[in-house]
Design a protein around this nucleic acid. Sequence first.
DNA 1: TTGCATATAGATAGATCGGTCTAATTAATT
DNA 2: AATTAATTAGACCGATCTATCTATATGCAA
Lengths: 193, 193
Amino acid sequence: MNIKHSKEDVLNKGMMLFRLNGYHNTGTNEILRETGISRGSFYNFFKDKDDFGVQVLDYYTMSTTNYINELLNKKGLNAKQRIVHLFEIFTESYTKVNYKWGCLLVGMTQELSGINELFTQATGRNFEELIKPLTICIQQGQEAGVINKGQKPRAMALSIWGSYNGALVLMKSGLHQEPLDAFLENLNKTLKV
Amino acid sequence: MNIKHSKEDVLNKGMMLFRLNGYHNTGTNEILRETGISRGSFYNFFKDKDDFGVQVLDYYTMSTTNYINELLNKKGLNAKQRIVHLFEIFTESYTKVNYKWGCLLVGMTQELSGINELFTQATGRNFEELIKPLTICIQQGQEAGVINKGQKPRAMALSIWGSYNGALVLMKSGLHQEPLDAFLENLNKTLKV
DNA sequence: TTGCATATAGATAGATCGGTCTAATTAATT
DNA sequence: AATTAATTAGACCGATCTATCTATATGCAA
């Protein structure tokens, strides 16, 4: 009796595994075991492990971007408040798992960008996707006068997203909350008019 | 005819390899080939690969901390100027290698912290070492009135070092300069009285 | 010099890696 | 219903992984 698995389920599981244990540290055997899929099916869905990795990364970025857009379009808050709210929600999600996993894009960047051509392109592309909504929201906030104009939207988005990513790394390096709080504190200062 | 290698040479080479290609993506064979050391010698120096990795990380932090201290004690500049100068020098070093490598502590954190007990302790410990000089310098700057007092020294150091680490990740994800410039721009704003 | 600890060399081992292959099953098409 | 295409299953393969093992060479102390 054969079992049918959706490709999305496999991508989801792979995402979780890569975020928890990293790309090189996650073998295909582990992916097969965790998803219950067979080796034949895996290589029917995906050309090879790298192809799988890139698809997982694209999938991660797509879902994350959707969620970001949702939060940054919330009614009843101004642009600045929406951004602060976004990062409060995001940092909380890491608190909830005891700081044990990180941003997949950060991890894949560290492990693969600059080494593997496919992933070098993928990390660059996904990073641009991820930062787009924030850039737009900052621009709106500056036009509305609720965010300071000390940096151009793009540069400010880079600063903030960078600070956020860095906070996640520091968090993971000591498995504690402190860097996330420092980031949120600094975020308010960065945005303040 | 046997050849004698210093342990420090091997640590140095390992540091370079891990920064370039990551921990799991660097095999012992590659380490042996690059250093010219034999397998027997390697396992005479180091208990196993993990032990080697931790020693490399400790070595990296020690040399980096020494360099930070040197830059943060430079005569003729005030605390704020010394911090800005430090990060200008540091970011430049990545520009020079075409954004192809990252901070070893960031990489090891992503790959190993939270997974491997030995490395979890090591990343936490090394991160604390690395941030210490910056914290002290910020405190001096605040007391001297050249750095704003909006955040406590420790929190500001976390914000800044986090932003710096995040900028390195964004840099590597797209292999470009932009996030480094955005970070330096933002750094000035963070410090300004 | 003798004796002993340490360092080097490299063959070898067992486990695991990513990936292929054939056969069986299921789905789609005519 | 018959035929073809797509999917699933899992045995299997060569390559590579980390680590050990034995033998040889070297440094040092008595």
